[in-house]
Design a protein around this nucleic acid. Structure first.
Length: 104
DNA sequence: TAGTTGACGACGG
DNA sequence: TCCGTCGCCAACT
């Protein structure tokens, strides 16, 4: 468990219900240097049994690029739809209005 | 110890 | 506008 792991987890937990965030936004806000590190850290969160709403993190196009890393590929979509986010073709509909930006 | 991998994004052609 | 390439950097093998 490293420091930036915890930063990613803490920020991800702040994402409100019904909103989504992107890897790039998180990487930029936390000054991680690379968006890939965010995805990697979230991947670790599962293997370490962390309760992180990783399904609220998508790539910059609003695509559910991380769904294959969930226990089942459609789990990410189901969880987002349960929060009122519409998913079509593995993409977040009306993506720009759903994006949440971290507050300092 | 060194090479490879990866839930991305920016940039140039 | 779309596609390919490269940089990012820590963990894994």
């Amino acid at each position: 468990m490293t420091n930036y792991h915890q930063k990613v987890f803490q920020l991800t937990r702040k994402i409100p219900r019904g909103k989504v965030c992107t890897y790039g936004i998180i990487a930029n806000f936390l000054e991680l240097g690379s968006a890939r590190m965010v995805g990697w850290a979230l991947n670790k969160s599962f293997s370490q049994g962390m309760s992180v709403p990783a399904h609220r993190v998508v790539n910059r196009k609003g695509e559910l690029s991380g769904r294959n890393h969930f226990p089942s590929p459609d789990m990410m979509q189901k969880m987002l739809e349960a929060e009122g986010i519409e998913i079509k073709d593995n993409k977040v509909m009306d993506f720009e209005s759903k994006v949440w930006y971290p507050e300092i």
